[in-house]
Amino acid sequence: MAWFRKKKKFTPIGAQKTDLPEGVWAKCPSCAEYVTNDDIRRNLHRCPKCDHYSVFPIEERIQHTLDDGSFEEFDSNLASKNPLDFDGYDKKLQSAKQKTGRHEACVAGRGTIHGYPVIFAALDFSFMGGSMGSVVGEKITRCAERAVNDELPLVVISTGGGGARMHEGTLSLMQMAKTSAAIGRMKQHGVPFISVIAHPTMGGVAASFAALGDVIIAEPGALIGFAGPRVIEQTIGQQLPKGFQRAEFLLDHGMIDMIIERPQVRETLKPLIHHMWYARIAARNEQRDQTGLSIAGRTA
């Protein structure tokens, strides 16, 4: 399945190299410049010197994307079992839970973007690479079903480099069909789904709901594809061209709609949600008002 090169991280400078306090400075994996962690955070986890993108921590991602204080999480208690008794999976889950403080690799809920209510989900790369097992599949499916029920657009931000989670075997594979079918239902009901893809998103996540957005937005340089670059290199026995499977490559080949810099993602979502959904809702409400009918719950 899909794997990818180990993601380079900002490496804190060891105390022996400098007398600066630990955790304050980091070295950019791309331009090797030293920058402060505060600057990186303020710059939405992009290197202030060379604009290299690192993983956007999920809390900050939600905070940045949705209106302040608007996020209501649901299904946060859904947790994975070890259905195959896969050796080492319990331990892996345990340490991921400890690291992130959450039960699984997907955070889902409801919030607003510039006042427009949406169903929102994001994959957490720091929880087993944002891979999809039963819980992630279930949460995404519930989001799509809620979107249809509540007549709200769905926005999902994927950072699913792990693809379909191997530790849940064929059950993970089936989540691809399950989530895709749920997105299919949204489309039949005409409820919009916007898929935002961040680095890296591969395998079972890329080859299911993430590829099915009415609109697909990617962050610059994001690695997106089915097979991991290493697997392809082994298969064809040669080095891959530069930029292969990057967002720019996908845009060139017509696989995504646009590449948007991280600070502008929220601004880009607003008109899309408006055109695809709330313009119509507003028109509908206006018509009903004129005919003397009023419906509740459709503001915005």
Binding site: H103, G109, S134
Partner: peptide, 18 residues
């Protein structure tokens, strides 16, 4: 396909992201 998957509902939620 909707019914495929194994999970449970934990008593504790994660930290409040609300």
């Amino acid at each position: 396909f909707r019914d495929i998957g194994v999970f449970y509902e934990a008593e504790t939620t994660g930290p409040a992201l609300a």
